[in-house]
């Protein structure tokens, strides 16, 4: 074990390290002990003077991740959809791509068709990346329309109930409203809440008459369907005794753990 610790520290040299490495590769027990030795050696990291990196590093990391996701979506796009009528115009589109593609950008439906062919144009990465942004904007428009249709159907239904949410605790001045249609299993809600510190999120819950609380979504700015409204789908025909918003770790949790800031009973 002591040799494993020296190995984990990187303090064994040449032949000794190689011999130990070869042995560990064949020995399950020593593999486990090496994992423990690495853990012990890692304690030395805590001996370093603690400093924070520049805030820009995180911003750059997240931007890199988003850019990578857009690239991945671009390459996956041709597998997900086939635009009707594309075949006839594809040859012409590809040959005219450099000259006439600006016109397609202006037409959202044409952008979707152009991306399938332009997705194959490996050499025009910058142009393709711009078009990808337009495609996502079009997708969001379509998604928003579906969400708004859901919203309208809930608001218009005669059996939709309205529950006002009142602020509690540190958010005494907060307020919210839930429009709930149990038959459809759809909630539409809005909330006015104070800003949260980093690492925390607001999360909406439906409290059924029987059973555990049902997660109705994290109140992210990006999740709003329109204005300050969110929608959520829950199991249809769930009888609700109330609704609540709690403060949870960023990203949300499966069951409420944090303090309530908005509550309302049906």
């Amino acid at each position: 074990m002591e040799e494993l610790e020296l190995y984990a520290l990187g303090a064994l040299s040449g032949e000794e390290a190689a011999a130990l490495q070869a042995h560990v590769a064949e020995c399950g027990e020593c593999t486990m002990k090496l994992a423990q030795a690495h853990g012990s050696a890692a304690l030395m990291a805590f001996a370093a003077k603690q400093e924070r990196p520049a805030g820009t590093i995180k911003a750059e990391l997240m931007a890199r991740i988003r850019a990578n996701r857009e690239e991945e979506d671009r390459f996956a796009w041709p597998l997900r959809t086939q635009a009707p009528g594309l075949g006839a115009g594809r040859a012409k589109m590809e040959s005219d791509a450099k000259g006439s593609w600006w016109n397609w950008v202006l037409v959202p439906a044409a952008v979707l068709l152009a991306l399938v062919s332009l997705g194959l144009s490996w050499q025009n990465r910058k142009i393709a990346a711009e078009l990808q942004k337009e495609r996502r904007a079009a997708e969001l428009l379509i998604h928003d329309r579906e969400e708004i249709e859901k919203l309208v159907s809930v608001l218009a239904a005669p059996d939709t109930v309205t529950v006002k949410l009142a602020g509690t605790g540190d958010a005494a001045n907060a307020s919210g409203v839930v429009k709930y249609n149990g038959k459809m299993g759809v909630m539409v809600y809005s909330a006015e809440l104070p800003a949260l510190p980093g690492g925390k999120s607001y999360e909406m819950w439906l409290m059924p008459t029987n059973g555990a609380a049902i997660n109705a979504g994290v109140l992210r700015a990006s999740g709003r369907v329109w204005g300050n409204l969110w929608t959520a789908e829950v199991p249809a025909k769930t009888e609700a005794k109330g609704f609540a918003v709690t403060i949870e770790p960023a990203g949300g949790v499966a069951q409420p753990t944090g303090p309530k800031v908005l509550v309302g009973a049906t």
Partner: peptide
């Protein structure tokens, strides 16, 4: 992405501090 953001917030100080101690260079540690 929020989960990655939370994980980064949790460990960025430890990782950066150790890397900087080894490399003696802020940019390389970042």
């Amino acid at each position: 992405e929020e989960a990655l953001s939370a994980l980064y917030d949790r460990y960025n100080r430890l990782v950066f501090s150790m890397a900087k101690r080894i490399l003696g260079d802020t940019g390389k540690a970042e």
